[in-house]
Simulated scan of single mutants.
Amino acid sequence: MNNLAQVHQLNPYAIQLCATGRWIAQRHWVPATGGNFSIRSSAQSCLVTASGKDKGELSPADLLQVDFDEISFSCQGKPSAETALHCALYRHYPDAKAVLHTHSVQATVFSRLISQPQYCFDGYEMQKAIQGIQSHQQALLLPVLDNTQDMAALAAKVTQLAGTQTLPYAFLVRGHGLYVWGDSLEQCKRHLEAWEFLIACELERIKICGLV
């Protein structure tokens, strides 16, 4: 184990992120080593999961230190392909402390059913689990972005969206999955669970009633 990996083994933030990763994996939201997680480690860097790692078996040694601007890292391993999206969110939201990306069945299927660039959730009490939402009657608009293998272009789209509208600590990538973030890892985990619940509920409603 190199010196940086040893440091990560003692980093409480790295330990917390790995515990959260196991919690997510137990819910089958990151199959086949999919998804990626990160936690801010300084004003200009984060720890991000290495590519190809089973998220149910993460250890701090599986996290890479990444600089936001250079997207550089100084540890053996390859950072997740979507690292640029994590960095874009941290740059735009200086209070963001964690980013979680999942590939749940319900979020992936839901994203393919929605042809519009955003989807409105309303009437669900669970909406209040999202920071800043005070009532089930408050409309909650979830952006849905087209998928692409060009992560720089997708990151630029996320930055553009964040600069022109208030994002609900989340967005969907069509046919791909869900991204959420928060001002603490605990808040980010709550946002993830709430959005997965809301998407699952709306998907069930669509099965019964159809899109409206």
Rank of each mutant, 00 (worst) to 15 (best):
D150F: 11
Q76C: 05
S41T: 15
N3S: 12
E70D: 08
V109S: 01
L58F: 06
T166L: 09
E204V: 13
H176D: 07
F171N: 00
H136R: 15
T108L: 01
T33C: 12
A50C: 06
K189P: 00
P94H: 11
F37N: 04
H136E: 15
M151A: 06
S45W: 03
T102A: 04
L85G: 06
W23C: 07
A32H: 11
W29M: 11
S42C: 03
Y119N: 00
K128Q: 13
T148N: 06
L211H: 10
T33K: 08
G21L: 06
N2C: 08
N11E: 15
N2G: 14
P117A: 09
K207L: 10
A98W: 08
Q44R: 14
L211T: 11
F68C: 02
S41L: 13
L172T: 03
D150K: 09
L198M: 10
Y179K: 08
A194G: 11
L4D: 07
L64G: 00
E57F: 00
L47S: 05
A5C: 09
A50I: 10
Q116N: 10
L145D: 02
H103Q: 06
E202I: 05
A162S: 13
R40L: 07
Q127S: 13
F110R: 01
Q6K: 14
D69T: 14
L89Y: 06
L185R: 07
L85A: 07
L192D: 04
F73E: 04
H8T: 04
T164P: 00
A14I: 14
G177K: 07
E82F: 04
D146P: 01
Q116I: 09
Q6F: 10
A129V: 15
Q44I: 14
R22V: 07
V144Y: 03
K157V: 12
R91E: 10
D122M: 15
Q76W: 06
Q26K: 14
Q149Y: 12
V66G: 05
A170V: 02
Q116K: 15
R174L: 08
H8D: 03
S111D: 00
N147K: 01
Q116D: 12
L85M: 15
P79W: 02
Q149K: 10
F68A: 03
